[in-house]
Design a protein around this nucleic acid. Structure first.
Lengths: 220, 220
DNA sequence: GTCTATACTTGGATAGAC
DNA sequence: GTCTATCCAAGTATAGAC
């Protein structure tokens, strides 16, 4: 997303200075969303963190909401690329447990960096600003798409895929991911969420053992 | 929660008029959180909806945040009571599938009424207001406690309880619930979430059939 | 083209009239 | 106990300086 062809933000100039200013503002917007939430992400708060003037937000992005969307785009780009690499590594092995482990590692990174907090805050904050909801929803698509692909890859020819469509499950996995991030962030304690991943890994092992066919793991 | 002994809000007077004013404000706060989110829940917006003066919020509750917490308390009380009744009904039957059905019905009600939106908005908005996080976290306890009890009841002596502790699973179920509400609310479409419940019901039936022992369902 | 200064609006909170 | 009037801080947005 955030390709040159379909810009979500009006970008007046392409000079080195302008690009750097926008980069600083986007960085500051991400940090502000992480630490102060959507309700605390005002033009003044973001600009102060970026060390620049608050008027620049409106010059470069047109509105605070547009800057926040640009921040969401930036986070999506960097995270999805990273997710893809992690799942490809797990895919080369192929067992369900490896995928759960990969998800666990990614989740831990996300909590540390607060990336998903940005997404959660944008979703929750969308109701406050008219028209923002559809924009955020559009940016959620790649996340669910990616999750669906990862699930299809993880399943292989496992029998579970017949009873629960990957699309539906992907929706649930994303929802769970967002919920876990919310709770962990609220309570400042990631232990319960991490415990769940451990149990999921156990169940994954149990499931693949139970299914009899050790789905194409023997192929090097 | 929200007992008389540990009031989260300072309530100056107990006259019939004062009580009614507070009730109106709490109602309006709930509606505002549902429709405009935490970021849109200003004193003026809430007071306008309640048809009363903005200053009354500070007189009766001390701050906007306190009013929002009172709103969360009100929602928690009414919903947990309802949840309890629904699970008791399902408990008298005792199969896992009945519990999933009960959860499905409750979830649909919550989406219609927007009750969980209030909780989600408070959790997401908590980062904006210092000190609000711990208050919201404290009010989340009953929800996870209730979920844990429902899970223990649903499992009975099923073998799954040994591998995944009810406490951990309850945490995940609450997280999933919050996430599903967020996504459904964002996209204005509950179909994907409802589809998940259908699949869960299927799996529940499959699981109880697979476990051989049809855990104490034959006892009327 | 880029940024600063300023205008104007809304929000939280209180003091005093009723 | 309730409402109006008001203060000031913080918010969005633009007009004009560089």
């Amino acid at each position: 997303m955030a390709k040159a062809g379909t810009p979500s933000t009006v970008t007046p100039g392409g000079s080195a200075r302008a690009v750097e200013t926008r980069r600083l503002l986007v960085e500051a917007a991400i940090t502000t969303l992480k630490e102060d939430g959507y309700a605390g992400a005002s033009a003044r708060a973001i600009a102060a963190r970026a060390g620049s003037n608050q008027g620049l937000i409106f010059y470069h992005f047109g509105s605070v909401a547009n800057l926040l969307l640009a921040a969401l785009d930036a986070v999506s780009d960097v995270r999805l690329a990273h997710y893809g690499a992690a799942v490809e590594r797990a895919g080369s092995v192929g067992s369900l447990g490896d995928f759960v482990d990969a998800a666990r590692a990614i989740f831990q990174e996300d909590l540390d960096a607060g990336y998903v907090t940005v997404l959660v805050e944008m979703i929750a904050g969308a109701s406050a600003t008219p028209g923002l909801g559809v924009e955020v929803a559009a940016r959620l698509g790649p996340w669910t798409d990616f999750t669906r692909q990862a699930i299809e890859q993880a399943w292989g020819d496992a029998p579970l895929g017949a009873v629960v469509p990957a699309t539906d499950l992907a929706y649930g996995v994303v929802a769970l991911y967002l919920g876990l991030e919310m709770l962990s962030h609220l309570e400042g304690d990631r232990a319960p969420a991490m415990a769940l991943f451990s149990h999921a890994a156990q169940l994954a092992g149990l499931l693949s053992a139970l299914s009899g066919v050790q789905s194409r793991k023997d192929v090097p």
